[in-house]
């Protein structure tokens, strides 16, 4: 970032390459809408470009970048919650019993094990679905921790919440995920996660 502040566009390109995948996964899973996620991802980087002069070398760039992304996603989620109206162009959120093709289905299993790949797809679908259904506070905490690899302290700083609160939100998010994946069976046919206690 310091190099980009000196005018090196290549340095900024390197930053984008380093963080765009995580940011995309975060934004994509946060808003559950590909088009909105693309707009938000672009907006995140544009904000970085516009605010490059304000960045201080003492700040961690990843935290600063993820905080920008989180704020944008949170604002979007609030706007969506306010509208409560789905776009006619919007792809319907896949229901649990929906068997239509998903993007995840286009990814080939790396080990060639079709059954296991199918299970992974099933799990990924369930995880995406469960994450999309999480409350915003729990969702952002879960995604920042699991997708962006931020520590709980960094998450607390980014969300302006205390660390115990962040951990508590994480625990609730995990419980919901466990419920969502309860009925899944792993490749061995054993109940993957068991029933909720």
């Amino acid at each position: 970032m310091a190099r980009y502040q000196k005018g090196e566009v290549a340095a900024f390109a390197e930053l984008v390459s380093r963080h765009e995948k995580r940011l995309w996964n975060f934004v994509r899973r946060f808003v559950a809408d590909a088009a909105t996620a693309e707009d938000l991802l672009q907006e995140v980087f544009l904000r970085v470009v516009r605010s490059a002069g304000e960045w201080q070398p003492s700040a961690k760039f990843s935290t600063w970048l993820y905080t920008i992304a989180r704020n944008l996603c949170t604002d979007n989620a609030r706007r969506r919650a306010f509208r409560r109206a789905d776009s006619l162009d919007q792809t319907p959120v896949p229901a649990r019993d929906e068997s239509g093709p998903h993007r995840i289905d286009k990814v080939a299993a790396p080990n060639g094990n079709a059954e296991k790949a199918a299970m992974n797809r099933e799990i990924a679908t369930r995880v995406d679905q469960a994450v999309a259904e999480l409350p915003v506070e729990q969702r952002e905490v879960f995604l920042m921790r699991e997708v962006m690899d931020m520590s709980f302290a960094e998450i607390a700083a980014a969300t302006s919440a205390s660390e115990p609160t962040v951990k508590s939100r994480m625990r609730y998010a995990l419980e919901r995920l466990r419920v969502a994946l309860a009925e899944l069976r792993d490749a061995d046919g054993v109940a993957a996660l068991g029933s909720t206690p």
């Binding site: 984008v16 996964n25 693309e38 995840i104 797809r121 699991e146």
Partner: peptide, 27 residues
């Protein structure tokens, strides 16, 4: 399971057009 789904081979790649647009804006 969640980690596998998020970081595994199923992790999604961002659209290429966003990358290009962002770099153009930075330039």
């Amino acid at each position: 399971h969640a980690r596998n789904a998020l970081h595994g081979p199923l992790a999604q790649e961002p659209p290429a057009r966003i990358h290009a647009a962002v770099l153009e804006a930075a330039k």
